[in-house]
Simulated assay, not measured.
Amino acid sequence: MDLPRIFTIRESSHRIHNPFTPGKLAVLGQALHLTPGTRVLDLASGSGEMLCTWARDHGVTGTGVDISTVFTEEARARAAELGVADQVTFVHDDASGHVSDEPVDLAACIGATWIGNGMAGTVELLARSLRPGGLMLIGEPYWRREVPDEETAVACHARSKEDFVALPELIGRFGDLGYDVVEMVLADQDSWDRYQAAQWLNLRRWLDANPDDELAPQVRAELTTGPADYARHQREYLGWGVFALMAR
Rank of each mutant, 00 (worst) to 15 (best):
L167D: 12
A127D: 09
R235W: 03
R159E: 11
D2C: 13
V104F: 01
M184C: 12
F164R: 14
V123Y: 01
A231W: 10
L207W: 02
V70F: 14
N210H: 13
G111L: 08
R78Q: 14
K24T: 00
V123A: 00
L223D: 03
G29N: 05
S12W: 08
Q87P: 07
D2W: 15
L28V: 15
G46W: 02
G29I: 12
L43E: 03
G178V: 00
L177N: 01
P217Q: 07
R39Q: 09
R220H: 12
P36G: 07
D101Q: 07
D193G: 12
A85R: 12
R235K: 11
P148N: 12
A26Y: 14
G23M: 10
F7G: 09
I67E: 08
R128F: 09
I16E: 07
P148D: 09
V70M: 10
R131G: 06
W143C: 06
I67H: 05
G48N: 01
G241T: 05
T113H: 15
D94A: 13
Q218D: 14
W143T: 09
V123M: 01
Y142T: 00
A187Y: 15
C109P: 08
T38H: 07
H14R: 14
R220W: 03
H157I: 12
P168G: 12
P141I: 10
V65C: 03
E150T: 15
F20T: 06
G178L: 00
